[in-house]
Design a binder for these strands. Structure first.
Lengths: 187, 187
DNA sequence: GTCTATATGCAGATAGAC
DNA sequence: GTCTATCTGCATATAGAC
């Protein structure tokens, strides 16, 4: 499963053969079929891997008490992955793009669900901060990440991850709590 | 070439067969090879189509005198394409993601070059406005577009294009000219 | 459970009639 | 230039020995 996730990310879903994955996992080709009946099941396994990584990441971030610090640590993590992002793009994002081109099967929805989980987690942090429209803020954050990853990948420039990542860090810093007593009418 | 551009965008590069393109163009398969020796040449032709579309777009925008209005019109164009973006993603962006997975050939660089041309055009507009770091602003703009397109596509939600597009419009509006005489030291 | 050998289908590419 | 028929290679998937 780890080999599948890695190779599918590196080479893309459609250009990766089962032989590639088998070789990366150091097992003969036929053996793969004992555990995964079809290539689609292998792709699903890769999605599970990414899902587990997301769980690990959020669990680590939640050890911090301040939601704003968690969000900034998330962005720092993205920046640290800049070289990989420039070479191969965001693992989940590029997977979503590829799978969305498929009409049959429902793997595309699963990639979307994975992104939505990140979105929901981020939304929860903004909500904890008491900020208005946490869903919108989460969307801006994750879209920002996907955008900078795609640009870094397309232009083969990890510096883009640093520049846009820093901008996101500053953005998170500037978000202000709304005035709690905007009007004397309240109560 | 138009059929190639359309079908390659809809189905993705790797899942599109020459038969698909031939059928969309209403010519028999073998005939395609009279004009395009390989599938790669067809992909290149699709890139040329996208390039021509970009030229048409910027030419149209440059009829406006105010660079800020041009940028806002660009964003409006993106928002108008929200349904296509939600179903298939940004034509150039998804192409870049797919082609970047290829090791052999140099098509990936051409997709990147196309994105860079948009980047350069946007940078020119910010520069005309006299704003500092026009390249960074252009990067933020185009990354924002790619990010919202990918999210709209992954979540199958055109509303994302509207929400994030509106945010970009407000962002362009808030960009201020720097103080021209910040210090009496000058001269 | 593991592995080799093989079947099947299809996509890219070509030959050659018209 | 156009089109049909066909070749070739390769990727998914299977059969079956061990």
């Amino acid at each position: 499963m780890a080999a599948a996730a890695r190779v599918l990310h590196e080479q893309g879903v459609e250009r990766t053969t089962l032989a590639d994955i088998a070789q990366a996992a150091d097992v003969p080709v036929g053996n793969v079929y004992y555990y995964f009946k079809t290539k689609d099941e292998l792709i699903q396994a890769a999605l599970s891997e990414h899902s587990a990584h997301l769980d690990q990441l959020t669990a680590r971030l939640e050890q911090m008490t301040d939601p704003r610090a968690r969000l900034k640590a998330l962005i720092e993590t993205w920046i640290e992955q800049r070289d990989l992002a420039a070479r191969r793009g965001c693992p989940t994002g590029t997977l979503a793009v590829e799978l969305d081109k498929r009409t049959e099967g429902d793997l595309d929805a699963e990639a979307g669900a994975l992104i939505r989980r990140l979105l929901d987690w981020a939304s929860g942090q903004f909500r904890e901060l008491g900020l208005p429209d946490p869903d919108d803020l989460a969307l801006t954050l994750v879209a920002g990440y996907q955008g900078m990853s795609l640009m870094a990948n397309a232009l083969r420039d990890p510096g883009i991850m640093s520049r846009e990542g820093d901008r996101l860090l500053r953005w998170v810093d500037t978000l202000q709590l709304p005035d709690r007593n905007p009007s004397p009418r309240t109560r």
